[in-house]
């Protein structure tokens, strides 16, 4: 249908190359930097060619950094562990809470159902500090300050709306007759929910779970306010790391690479569902 001239094809090629360069170069550069010693990093002009070293990663993993001034302790692996813990437990909890609720909103029209669903959605758009600042005072008062439980609770603000609204769409797509057929065949409501509704909504549940994991992992401000050093995830930890280690640029780059790799890998894995997830189910990819 479309006839493209050679000239136009060249222009398109150049534009796509430029777009790729702009969006991928930073990731590539940091990746390369993470394999350089400080001397290599500071070389002018910067070069794409160098003899790679894994020293940055080994010192991050062992938590010991040998410098001229002596040995320095690095807590970065602890941050990475915190990220894994906070994100996965938050998503697991959000699935346990959110999937039944999504089913209720999809299947039953009960009084206030839409209001409740939209209230949950509106959490996604309120300024997080508005909730976090007073919450930090409350958490101090009831002892949830700087605890994993407190953080995981607050992370529900990220994960729950996402799971609720994406999974709800998948439940709504299941014909009610399919569930009725199973119940009439003699199965209880709970059996129908676990053996029919959940398996049929599984792609949506998986997509929502993956996305929620990515968003929890990438969150910065919740932990910045509610967590102290030993509970901080990588997003906050990396910032503290920069302040603490100052000029250890190679390690900073390695820390960033370790911090973004899980989400980038998951994103590629879940890319089929990203459009739907990012738009909270408004646009199908």
């Amino acid at each position: 249908m479309e006839h493209t001239s050679p000239f136009e094809r060249i222009i398109r090629g150049v534009l796509i190359a430029a777009v790729l360069l702009f969006f991928l170069f930073p990731i590539l550069w940091i990746f390369l930097m993470s394999f350089q010693t400080n001397e290599q990093v500071l070389r002018i002009p910067p070069s794409l060619f160098f003899s790679p070293t894994t020293i940055n990663y080994t010192s991050l993993v062992t938590g010991k950094l040998q410098t001229a001034a002596g040995s320095l302790d690095l807590a970065f692996m602890r941050n990475l562990g915190n990220s894994v813990l906070l994100s996965s437990v938050s998503v697991a909890l959000a699935l346990v809470l959110g999937v039944p609720a999504a089913y209720a909103f999809a299947r039953f029209k009960f009084p206030l159902s839409e209001d409740i669903a939209f209230t949950l959605l509106s959490f996604r758009f309120a300024p997080p500090l508005l909730v976090l600042l007073p919450l930090s005072l409350y958490f101090q008062a009831i002892g949830l300050d700087d605890t994993y439980i407190g953080l995981i609770w607050v992370y529900q603000l990220i994960a729950l709306p996402l799971i609720l609204w994406i999974v709800r769409g998948y439940f709504e797509d299941i014909s009610p007759d399919i569930e009725y057929a199973y119940r009439i065949a003699g199965h209880s409501w709970l059996q129908t929910f676990t053996r029919i509704a959940i398996p049929l909504a599984r792609p949506g549940i998986a997509a929502a779970g993956l996305l929620a994991f990515i968003f929890c992992w990438n969150n910065f401000v919740f932990a910045l306010i509610l967590a102290s050093a030993d509970k901080q995830p990588v997003t906050v930890g990396a910032l503290a790391f920069v302040t603490a280690s100052g000029i250890q640029y190679g390690q900073i780059a390695a820390a960033i690479v370790l911090s973004v790799t899980p989400t980038l890998a998951l994103a590629l894995f879940a890319q089929r569902y990203l459009v739907e997830g990012l738009s909270l189910g408004a646009v199908k990819g």
């Binding site: 399919i178 009725y180 009439i184 049929l200």
Partner: peptide, 20 residues
């Protein structure tokens, strides 16, 4: 009585087979 206790067999117009 809930549907699972009524002991009827039903076939829906749209078949409503379990896709999985």
């Amino acid at each position: 009585a809930p549907p699972e206790t009524r002991g009827v067999g039903i076939a829906f117009q749209n078949f409503a087979l379990f896709p999985h």
